[in-house]
């Protein structure tokens, strides 16, 4: 009894965090939900239960278009991260302890460098007078600069650079958990390396793959800075639209409805991923 009491006492240590979260996390999100049902007329927000914001968000054509563009970009980014990250995770698994530490260093260190710094680096490389365009022009290969940024390509490239680590680490974790004897058994029974990978390694790494995809997709859906810097006004994403609606139009109810749209999309992704992870875990 006293032991149980002691244990419940330990939860008092959560109170500072809970107090902070209630003010900076739970209350704000609740407020956004309430505000998404408020009425906005002549720059006045009137609370109530009003579905006009949602009707507008789904009905004006543009918001939905931007939403799907954001989803599409996030899918591109996630796929690119898988294609680039999976082989790296596989090499990390097979490398010796030293090589693995170095690879880990290279994978983790970009994670800790400022996002804006990494975006600046890409502007200097891909910009109209960036390294690539300057060099190609000097060599006389092109007359006018190639459109390498201020389009989806530039945005996807820079976001992949920022979030790659979040894909490699969970995949590596899942690969580490695989018993190599399962693969050796398949190989000794005559399966080619590709078949071993496809039928033995890949299914077993599914939980890590799902976790990485979820993480990268969620982060990509919410990213603001990189599309603004790399896309300019040519690639408008949902976070950019939300920011514009609040900062320039002061239309909180519409922005709240858009934020909830973003949250629901993310929630759906988390749900799908947890189903996949459960299914993958059964193997």
């Amino acid at each position: 009894m006293s032991d149980a009491n002691q244990k419940f006492k330990a939860w008092w240590l959560l109170s500072p965090t809970l107090l902070l979260y209630s003010l900076t996390f739970l209350l704000p999100v609740l407020l956004l939900v309430v505000m998404s049902f408020a009425k906005f007329e002549n720059s006045v927000t009137e609370f109530g239960f009003y579905l006009g914001n949602y009707r507008k968000v789904f009905g004006d054509g543009i918001t939905l278009l931007i939403f799907w563009r954001t989803v599409k970009l996030s899918v591109y980014i996630t796929v690119a991260c898988v294609v680039l990250g999976f082989p790296v995770a596989m090499v990390m698994r097979r490398a010796g302890p030293r090589g693995r530490l170095w690879l880990l260093f290279f994978i983790v260190s970009p994670l800790l460098t400022s996002i804006i710094v990494r975006n600046v680096a890409w502007v200097l490389i891909l910009g109209r007078s960036g390294i690539i365009n300057d060099t190609l022009r000097e060599w006389g290969l092109i007359a006018s600069p190639l459109p390498l940024m201020y389009n989806s390509f530039g945005v996807v490239l820079a976001v992949v650079h920022v979030y790659m680590s979040f894909m490699v680490l969970p995949i590596y974790g899942a690969l580490q958990a695989i018993n190599p004897s399962t693969e050796e058994a398949a190989a000794s029974l005559g399966a080619s390396p590709l078949r071993v990978f496809w039928f033995v390694t890949l299914p077993q790494s599914l939980p890590g793959l799902a976790a990485g995809c979820t993480l990268v997709f969620i982060l990509s859906m919410g990213v603001y800075l990189t599309p603004v810097i790399m896309g300019g006004n040519f690639v408008v994403t949902l976070p950019m639209l939300i920011t514009d609606v609040v900062r320039n139009q002061y239309n909180w109810p519409t922005a709240s409805a858009m934020s909830l749209m973003l949250l629901v999309a993310i929630g759906a992704m988390v749900l799908v991923s947890s189903v996949v992870q459960k299914f993958g875990g059964r193997h």
Partner: peptide, 24 residues
């Protein structure tokens, strides 16, 4: 459940978090 709640600000997009905090 408590652990999930404690680390949940990581999953919420910062744009949404920022919007809410700004309003408060």
């Amino acid at each position: 459940a408590m652990y999930a709640l404690m680390i949940s600000p990581m999953v919420l997009p910062h744009i949404v978090l920022g919007l809410g905090i700004f309003r408060i």
